[in-house]
Amino acid sequence: MVGAALSLAGRDLRLALRQRSDAGTVVLFFVLVASLFPLAIGPAPNVLLRIAPGVIWVTALLAVLLSLERLFLADFEDGSLELLTLAPTPLSLLVLAKCLAHWLTTGLPVILAAPVIAVLYGLEADAFAPLIGAMLLGSPSLSLIGAIGAALTLGARRGGVLVPLLVLPLYVPVLIFGVLAVDAALAGLPARPHLLLLGALLLAALPLAPIAAAAALRQAVE
């Protein structure tokens, strides 16, 4: 059962690696949008430092959002989604595997690119560890929650516009605690409580989001 799920994740990873542009585009989008803010707001270092955690998180959110469409759409269009729903493996486990592959190809590259942006914004070195820690705990939740939105809008008339409307309100807690963790570190306070809350969100999303997404996928192929 787990083997089937892992092989599905492996297949998604192979597909993503062979079309290298996909994961690359997400990182490029992240870096590009984040570097627009200093141009728009002005290069004053104290302002940039103040907005850095928020900009990094919001941009990461948008980058993940951008990539959600490809989570199920290709499988939906070529019919492999119907085979997945008929498989003996529980669909929620397969969704979890697809979320894992999605996180490895979007969340992880964005996290790897985040220190670069942090340096460009002049973030202090002691805020780096909380930033990376918060993103490591928060970004898997983004993939998991996003999977629900991606599954619900399969076959919708305005799928592309609809996903942000459905998913962004649910991303708000991750955004708030993610930014608070970095802000706390910048203010010399412990980031631990916010990291724990991010971990709690992830632990809640890990079992529940695949169930909801699987229910949505079953409706899509009905």
Binding site: L152, T153, R157, L166, P169, Q219
Partner: peptide, 30 residues
């Protein structure tokens, strides 16, 4: 925003029954 998403998802499909079911899942998640 969750209300607005619920309303938008309800009307986003050619088949009204699919829209209602998708919106039901969203309502439970929200």
């Amino acid at each position: 925003f969750l209300y607005l998403g619920h309303m938008a998802l309800m009307t986003a499909f050619e088949d009204p029954a699919r829209g209602r079911k998708a919106a039901a899942v969203l309502a439970l998640v929200g």
